[in-house]
């Protein structure tokens, strides 16, 4: 029982990270109908930014700030910096292609992904870095329910992930830009005719989606996973899968898909096999696509003739 509980907690934490990445895919897809393949690498940049902020603040052990403040600054700087990167990527790699075929932006995204990955490799070398969280947040800190312990890093990540998801829902539903974004997702032409500034909405969409990926990247670092130029590929793939499982373009879908994927992965690793966990996730993807081709929360695609 305690083992199951522990796996669930781990799964939810992982799922929170996936959900944040998945949201980025879905937001961009909703507005532009393109799959932003570079998203995983944007996440990687976010993790690096967080790492460098940590170093700048005195490193894991000798920080001159209280730990919560340090973590806050790491998230804030990384999210804003990466968000701006998102805007830049859109401006140079996607905007010129807005009127071209479906496949051109996908290829361009592939190019951006390769560029980001190798630029990071060139600038930061191939070494794997670590946030070294355990030296400033003792792993004994935390709480237990029964036999299940939730250490403070996991707790922080979990809470932050949910706070960000909640904030995003508010943003999408309550702000003008957020509503404009949904309007564009429903019917772009109509939105343009209603005088919505598409460029502005797209800029915001890319900013928010990159910032969420950056948050996921910093969380990943805090959870003591290695930071390196190639780190974005697998989480990017999982986030992408989560978005598809949830129904690409759907915001609640991305959240649910991410959490589901995290839990499934954690459980299969815990009970079946660590080595083949991706295989099981793949089976889940296949199953969803066969049974619900539009994803769990997706609406039926409309063909326009």
């Amino acid at each position: 029982m305690s083992y199951l509980g522990q796996q669930l907690v781990n799964g939810l934490t992982l799922g929170g990270v996936y959900a944040l990445i998945a949201l980025g895919y879905s937001l961009v897809y909703g507005v532009l109908q393109i799959l932003n393949f570079a998203h995983g690498d944007v996440y990687m940049v976010g993790a690096f930014l967080g790492y460098f902020v940590e170093l700048a603040l005195g490193g894991p052990t000798k920080s001159f700030l209280p730990v919560p403040l340090m973590i806050f600054i790491m998230f804030a700087v990384s999210m804003i910096g990466t968000g701006l990167l998102g805007i830049i990527i859109e401006r140079f790699a996607y905007r010129p292609l807005r009127k071209s075929s479906r496949i051109a932006p996908l290829i361009s995204a592939l190019g951006v992904s390769i560029l980001l990955q190798n630029a990071a490799q060139l600038l930061f070398s191939a070494n794997i870095r670590s946030y070294d969280t355990s030296s400033f947040i003792p792993s004994t800190l935390g709480f237990s329910i029964g036999d299940v312990t939730v250490d403070s890093v996991r707790l922080t990540v979990l809470i932050l992930a949910f706070v960000l998801m909640f904030a995003l829902s508010r943003w999408v539903n309550k702000t003008q830009v957020g509503r404009a974004m949904r309007a564009i997702a429903v019917d772009r032409d109509a939105a343009v005719m209603m005088g919505i500034d598409i460029d502005k909405v797209i800029r915001w969409t890319f900013f928010v989606s990159a910032a969420l990926a950056a948050a996921a990247g910093v969380m990943n670092g805090l959870l003591l996973r290695g930071v390196s130029s190639g780190m974005g590929f697998v989480p990017g793939l999982k986030g992408f899968t989560a978005a598809v499982i949830g129904g690409i373009g759907s915001i609640p879908g991305a959240m649910a898909g991410g959490l589901l994927l995290g839990v499934v992965e954690s459980l299969t690793q815990g009970y079946l096999s660590t080595n083949f966990s991706d295989f099981y996730t793949f089976l889940l993807l296949i199953a969803v696509m066969l049974l619900r081709p539009n994803g769990l929360f997706g609406k039926k695609a409309i063909v326009k003739a």
């Binding site: 361009s108 190019g111 190798n118």
Partner: peptide, 22 residues
């Protein structure tokens, strides 16, 4: 860094080509 360079060239090429001459 020939390997990284090659990848950088490919990445750059894909983006530029899509824009200039898809």
């Amino acid at each position: 860094e020939p390997n990284t360079t090659r990848q950088l060239i490919i990445g750059m090429m894909l983006v530029v080509l899509m824009i200039v001459r898809p």
